[in-house]
Computed example of a mutant assay.
Amino acid sequence: MKWIPQEVETYLSAKEYVDTAVIPVYSLSFGEEMKQSAAAFEFISLLTGYLEKQFTGRILLFPPYTYLKSEHIENVVSGLSKWEETVVQNEFKHIFYITSELDLRMFENKVDGSLIWLPSLPLGNMNEPQKIEVVESQAKQLLSIFTQKWSNHE
């Protein structure tokens, strides 16, 4: 389910079945890194959107956690922890952070949720069918991570 009124309404009436929060994490850069930042955003957006479609009824795709690349990474992790605390209080059993931000990999043990880092794949020069193929390929790898986490906590 997506973070839109109709689907949130469905979530509220079926909360007991939706136990997983998916939170895309992006950094925002300007100047020379702006294009790379936009490419990572596109890749992670398409990927998390695909996951949401595959697991509709099991996951809620949250709005992205976005921060400035110039921000201290410790502050970013602290912000993620605050989100996590609220998400857990609202009865989500599983939290997956999906990101292409390499800096966050060093802090994956600082959050209780599962931080999944993927290298950003440049989709800019691909046509739509090629983009879908690349995203599906990456998503298949994530599907096994999700199902493994779910089976370990059931």
Results as ranks from 00 to 15, higher is better:
89 Q>V: 00
79 G>C: 04
104 L>N: 10
59 I>V: 15
39 A>Y: 12
60 L>P: 03
45 S>K: 10
15 K>H: 02
101 E>I: 08
91 E>F: 13
120 S>L: 01
82 K>G: 06
22 V>T: 05
106 M>L: 14
122 P>L: 01
100 S>C: 11
107 F>Q: 00
70 S>L: 09
54 Q>H: 08
94 H>C: 00
25 V>R: 05
72 H>Y: 14
119 P>T: 02
65 Y>P: 04
121 L>H: 12
101 E>K: 03
91 E>T: 10
105 R>V: 15
127 N>D: 11
52 E>Q: 15
15 K>Y: 03
92 F>G: 03
65 Y>M: 08
113 G>F: 06
62 F>I: 00
66 T>V: 15
110 K>F: 12
20 T>D: 00
83 W>F: 15
59 I>F: 11
121 L>D: 04
94 H>S: 07
36 Q>W: 08
110 K>M: 09
24 P>G: 09
89 Q>I: 00
102 L>S: 13
126 M>E: 00
111 V>N: 07
107 F>H: 15
119 P>H: 07
105 R>M: 14
79 G>M: 02
125 N>W: 02
107 F>V: 01
78 S>V: 01
19 D>I: 07
53 K>G: 09
83 W>E: 01
25 V>H: 09
120 S>G: 11
112 D>H: 13
58 R>G: 02
79 G>T: 08
59 I>C: 13
115 L>F: 03
92 F>M: 01
48 T>C: 12
114 S>R: 08
123 L>Y: 02
114 S>Y: 12
121 L>G: 00
77 V>Y: 06
17 Y>R: 11
105 R>G: 14
79 G>N: 13
67 Y>D: 02
122 P>Y: 13
69 K>F: 12
65 Y>L: 10
50 Y>D: 15
114 S>F: 09
22 V>I: 15
93 K>Y: 06
43 F>A: 06
56 T>I: 04
119 P>S: 03
67 Y>E: 01
74 E>V: 11
86 T>H: 10
50 Y>M: 06
90 N>L: 06
62 F>Y: 12
104 L>P: 14
40 A>P: 03
